Simulated scan of single mutants.
Amino acid sequence: MSYKNILIAKEDAIATITINRPEKLNALNKITIQELHHAFKELETDSDTRVIIVTGSGQKAFVAGADIAEFANFSVEEGIQLAAKGQEILFNFVENLRIPVIAAINGFALGGGLELAMACHIRVASDNAKMGLPEVSLGLIPGYGGTQRLPQLIGKGRALEMILSAEMITADEAYRTGLVNHVVPADELVSFSNALAQKMIKNSPSAIGMAIKSVNANFKEDVNGFETEIKSFGKCFGTDDFKEGTKAFLEKRKAVFTGE
């Protein structure tokens, strides 16, 4: 499929999705959200892809929010549908992907951009990045999971301060609060994210998928995270990756995992 607003590159089992709307600071509109959904879905089913990195084109922005012009005149029902569909096809979809997704945050990550980064499993920020959820300054609240994921990452008090003040924080503050995993110089963001991905692609894809599912279970209503872990742990014993991993360990060699 050809894309209008995103670019995809693949190397060494690592796929990089670049949101490519620099003239709009990579803002998320309907087309971009649909394209991202399609790209993530295709890459998840591609056995040659072990890690996905998502970033923004240019040096100014990862994603500087949603495209406000698209919903400025929406009704209540249209607003509900906008949030519900976006969460379903992109933000929740990314969070529950069975392969790791790394957000390489270059520049501004605001509103829907920060929400996309928070839906990713790991976040790496350039040292010039700025993050925030400014929706209340528009008479809105975060609608793509921001009110839920931000408290999970940095705690209720800090999350409320960020949301209610609508102010941006620096990359260093994001690191201090646990919002991002790493902060690196802007010119090292891509190489650092790729190095992190390289560490992951050496490990069992099937086990990684089970680990993501088990960790996510702890944050879902009416789901017992411990029970999910127990069942997922047991399922690992039925995989080819488990047989290969244990055999390689006993034979004192590197395992060659297939994800089966």
Rank of each mutant, 00 (worst) to 15 (best):
D12W: 14
D12I: 12
I14T: 08
T16S: 08
T18H: 09
N20M: 11
N20P: 09
R21P: 05
E23C: 03
E23F: 10
K24F: 09
N26S: 05
N26P: 05
A27W: 03
L28A: 02
L28V: 01
K30D: 07
I31A: 14
I31N: 12
T32A: 03
I33Q: 09
Q34D: 10
L36C: 00
L36K: 01
H37D: 05
H37Q: 06
H38G: 11
A39I: 04
A39C: 11
E44F: 05
E44K: 05
T45Y: 13
S47A: 15
T49F: 09
T49N: 09
T49M: 10
V51Q: 04
I52G: 03
I53D: 04
I53T: 05
T55P: 08
T55D: 07
T55H: 05
G56E: 04
S57I: 12
G58C: 02
Q59F: 14
K60N: 15
A61N: 06
A61G: 01
F62S: 09
F62V: 09
F62W: 09
V63R: 07
A64C: 12
G65A: 14
G65L: 02
D67V: 12
I68Y: 12
A72E: 12
F74A: 10
S75W: 11
S75G: 10
S75N: 08
V76Y: 15
E77C: 11
E78A: 11
E78P: 11
E78F: 07
G79M: 12
I80P: 10
Q81R: 13
L82R: 10
A83Q: 05
A83H: 10
A83K: 12
A84F: 12
Q87G: 12
L90K: 01
L90F: 10
N92M: 10
N92L: 09
N92W: 11
V94P: 04
E95S: 14
L97T: 11
P100E: 02
P100L: 02
P100Q: 04
I102D: 01
G107D: 07
F108P: 06
A109M: 00
L110D: 00
L110I: 02
G111K: 01
G111F: 02
G111V: 04
G112F: 07
E115N: 13
L116W: 01
L116V: 04
A117S: 07
A117K: 00
A117W: 00
M118C: 02
C120Q: 02
H121V: 02
H121K: 05
R123E: 07
S126P: 05
N128V: 15
N128F: 11
G132V: 08
L133K: 05
E135A: 15
G139I: 02
I141F: 15
I141V: 14
P142R: 03
P142E: 01
